[in-house]
Amino acid sequence: MTADIVTRLRAAGCVFAEDEARLIAATAQTAAEAAAMAERRASGLPLEHVLGWADFCGLRIHVTPGVFVPRRRTEFLVARAAALAPPGAVVLDLCCGSGAIGAAVAARCGVSELHAADLDPAAVRCARRNLAPLGGRVYAGDLYAPLPAALAGRVDVLLANVPYVPSDEIPLLPAEARLHEPLLSLDGGADGAAVLRRVAAGSGRWLAPGGVLLTETGERQAPLAAEALARAGLAARVAESDEATVVIGELRGRPSPLSPPSPPPAPAGTPPGGG
Rank of each mutant, 00 (worst) to 15 (best):
V63D: 00
L143W: 11
A235K: 14
R220L: 14
R72A: 14
S241E: 11
L173P: 07
Q221L: 12
A103P: 03
A140M: 08
L114G: 01
G204I: 01
G66P: 06
E33L: 12
L159M: 07
V238I: 15
R128G: 05
A89M: 04
I170S: 12
A140C: 14
A85K: 04
A123F: 08
R220V: 11
A3I: 06
V78Q: 05
E113N: 11
V247Y: 05
L179H: 12
R22S: 09
V63Q: 00
A222Q: 14
A28S: 09
D19H: 11
A81E: 02
A103E: 01
L45Y: 04
L131R: 03
E39W: 07
L134V: 10
A239Y: 05
A42C: 13
V15A: 15
I170M: 10
V105A: 12
V165A: 12
L159S: 04
A149R: 14
T245D: 08
E39P: 00
R40I: 04
L147C: 13
A208K: 00
V91H: 04
G274W: 02
R108D: 12
G275A: 15
L184F: 13
H115E: 06
V124L: 04
V6G: 03
A236H: 10
V69D: 01
G136F: 00
A42E: 08
D168P: 06
A106R: 05
G141S: 10
A244Y: 03
P265I: 12
R73Q: 10
A12M: 11
A42Q: 11
V67N: 00
T74S: 14
P174V: 09
A175N: 10
A117S: 15
G141T: 06
E240T: 14
L258P: 00
L59N: 05
A177N: 08
R254Y: 05
G274T: 08
T74R: 02
G135I: 09
D156I: 00
Y139L: 12
G218K: 03
P272I: 08
P148I: 09
A106S: 15
L77G: 02
S112T: 14
E75C: 09
G269A: 07
D55N: 12
A145W: 03
R197Y: 15
C126Q: 02
G99P: 03
I248D: 01
A266W: 01
L251D: 00
A152D: 03
L114N: 01
G202M: 07
E250C: 12
V78R: 03
A200R: 07
A100F: 01
E250N: 07
V63Y: 00
D142F: 12
